[in-house]
């Protein structure tokens, strides 16, 4: 089939304001990903089109974009999922994710996102001596299961950049940072819970969440983000996990 792509373009070096680039591709297959199509445009038609990508199968988290109005990874979005197309033509609109400033075309400034990530102390805290037998700490499968979902996060920013609370005020840590905090707060081996819950209870922590569920819908790893945020809210109010 044929694909018609409208891509939001902006290069501050040369453009005063963003514009829509329009591209037509022939011989598009239903199993092609949006990343495949963007590559074809970049390689065959216009090498100035700029985007981030790496693994191309939904694991590295480089290519979160707004595709037909919803956040997704370009490499995990198949043409077949964007509708059957009218006749033999499919229309696809691609924009950078929202809430982070555009550096060029589909590339946004990720630094504010990673600042929020770092603010939740996203690392294992346990100052107790390790087991004397030189082996692993023990953890039951049930305890391990409690935070399994949030270990899947690939920091692609699809959730945070789909969140109206984040759009409204980018001082809000955002769902991705809360997911990271959750991964440690609910790990039975970790001892940093109190410090993390303090960050989470801050003005720009979990209470900014209005349970809109955009984050859950946007997550390419199918993490139950809103549920994780609710877990953290509960931990703050009850003081226990």
């Amino acid at each position: 089939m044929q694909a018609k792509l409208k891509i939001r373009r902006f290069n501050p070096e040369t453009d005063k304001k963003p514009w829509w680039g329009e591209y037509t591709l022939e011989n598009v297959h239903r199993t092609d990903t949006v990343l495949d199509l963007l590559h074809r445009i970049k390689w065959e038609q216009d090498g100035t089109l700029s985007l981030r990508r790496s693994c191309a199968h939904g694991v590295c988290g480089s290519d979160a974009m707004r595709i037909n109005g919803a956040n997704a990874l370009a490499c995990k979005t198949l043409v077949s999922r964007l509708g059957s197309g009218k006749g033999d033509v499919i229309n696809i609109q691609v924009e950078p994710i929202l809430g982070l400033s555009v550096e060029k075309d589909l590339i946004v400034d990720m630094e504010p996102f990673f600042d929020h990530y770092r603010s939740v102390m996203p690392y294992f805290i346990n100052d107790q001596p390790v087991p004397a037998d030189g082996r692993e700490r023990l953890q039951s499968p049930e305890d391990r299961h409690r935070f399994d979902d949030t270990t899947k996060c690939i920091l692609c920013a699809a959730c945070t950049s789909s969140c109206p609370s984040f759009w409204a005020d980018d001082r809000y840590v955002g769902p991705a940072a809360i997911v990271q905090a959750h991964r440690f707060i609910f790990d039975s081996r970790d001892e940093g819970m109190n410090e993390r819950l303090e960050v989470m209870a801050d003005t720009f922590g979990v209470w900014r969440c209005r349970t809109i569920f955009n984050c859950t819908n946007a997550c390419p790893r199918e993490i139950k983000v809103t549920e994780a945020i609710a877990d953290v809210k509960k931990a703050i109010t009850s003081g226990k996990v």
Partner: peptide, 13 residues
């Protein structure tokens, strides 16, 4: 010890 969440056996290993 760095916190890597390995899957666990019923005995915690």
């Amino acid at each position: 010890h760095m916190g890597l969440p390995f899957d666990r056996l019923p005995n915690g290993r």
